[in-house]
């Protein structure tokens, strides 16, 4: 018996963002249906994965993670090249060294690292500040200038520092990440404020501050889902691609940090699964750029995405 497949008629779509330059540029967003519903609409670009690179040796990464980058963690350029070798779609440079509790490195130093990394890789670059709003308001403009022409993805802009970050991104032609703590109303407001500073909507990405599996992923999932339904029903101020910082959350979990045990099994397998499951869950809610840490997570994630992007006749 013939079955009629019910299809939703959406009126909106997610904007398409280009990150990077030249032949290495990647596109994200652009879909006019919920994730992977190929029978209903178009999903022209697949979710992409970035691997994190730090400008200092991360103090608290478990051995099963840091061993994947043995010998390069004191050199961001070598580390970034390693990420390219592992097959990352983007490099996500995290300027943790600028944090006042770490090296408190000045904006010029952070910018020099960003420039060096950008010069060594041919894939698009994300650059994330240290997370201290005031410091990032100084660091990110310096990075934006150093990376002029690279069409990078810079963040994170918050409600408190978006003005200086946005101005620098507009001036030097970068994309921006607008971050808001699991608050769809604030997210929309921040997008409006950034857009009003002459930042085109297709150069704004949203970071809803996701949680890892077992650590509030449901909240992030439902906010992302509501955001996406808003975009598909025509809300242009929610129609931006979503960035998910998966690695930083997954590798904080007890499940990732606890060593091998009889009860929980091998740490490496468990931790990587934790990162992969978090990432593959969030793409179902509309995640477009997934920032991961372990290269094996990246590999498994990409296998999953390749399978999900296949059109299946129904």
């Amino acid at each position: 018996m013939a079955v009629t497949i019910l299809k939703e008629k959406w009126t909106g779509n997610v904007v398409e963002m280009v990150i990077g330059w030249g032949s290495g540029a990647v596109k994200v967003g652009g879909e006019n249906t919920l994730p992977f519903l190929h029978f209903e609409g178009d999903m022209p670009n697949e979710p992409v994965a970035a691997l994190e690179v730090w400008d200092m040796e991360p103090p608290d990464w478990p051995g099963v993670l840091s061993s994947a980058f043995a010998g390069v963690m004191s050199d961001p350029v070598a580390w970034a090249v390693k990420c390219v070798d592992y097959g990352a779609d983007l490099v996500c440079l995290r300027l943790a060294g600028a944090h006042p509790d770490n090296k408190d490195s000045p904006p010029a130093e952070a910018a020099a690292v960003a420039r060096a990394v950008a010069g060594a890789v041919n894939i698009p670059l994300m650059v994330i500040g240290c997370g201290i709003e005031e410091k990032d308001a100084e660091v990110l403009p310096a990075v934006a200038e150093a990376l002029a022409g690279k069409n990078a993805l810079l963040g994170c802009a918050t409600i408190n520092n978006y003005k200086s970050v946005t101005a620098a991104c507009v001036l030097h032609g970068h994309n921006i990440i607008a971050t808001s703590p699991l608050d769809i109303n604030l997210a929309k407001q921040l997008n409006i404020l950034i857009n009003e500073m002459n930042m085109p909507v297709n150069k704004i990405a949203m970071d809803p501050l996701v949680g890892a599996l077992g650590y509030g992923i449901e909240y992030a999932y439902s906010i992302m889902e509501r955001t996406r339904l808003g975009a598909l029903t025509g809300d242009k101020m929610l129609a931006m691609p979503v960035v998910c910082f998966v690695g930083q959350e997954a590798w904080k979990s007890r499940e990732a940090k606890t060593g091998d045990s009889d009860e929980w099994g091998a740490q490496a397998r468990r931790a990587i699964l934790w990162e992969v499951i978090t990432a593959t869950s969030l793409v179902q809610a509309g995640g477009a750029v997934l920032v991961l840490r372990h290269p094996e997570s990246l590999r498994q994630f990409k296998i999953h995405i390749a399978a999900m992007m296949k059109e299946v006749g129904i």
Partner: peptide, 14 residues
């Protein structure tokens, strides 16, 4: 019918 944000009067007119 529309997701709240502080600028809802302005966004409605856009």
């Amino acid at each position: 019918r529309n997701i709240y944000c502080d600028a809802f009067l302005k966004t409605f007119r856009k």
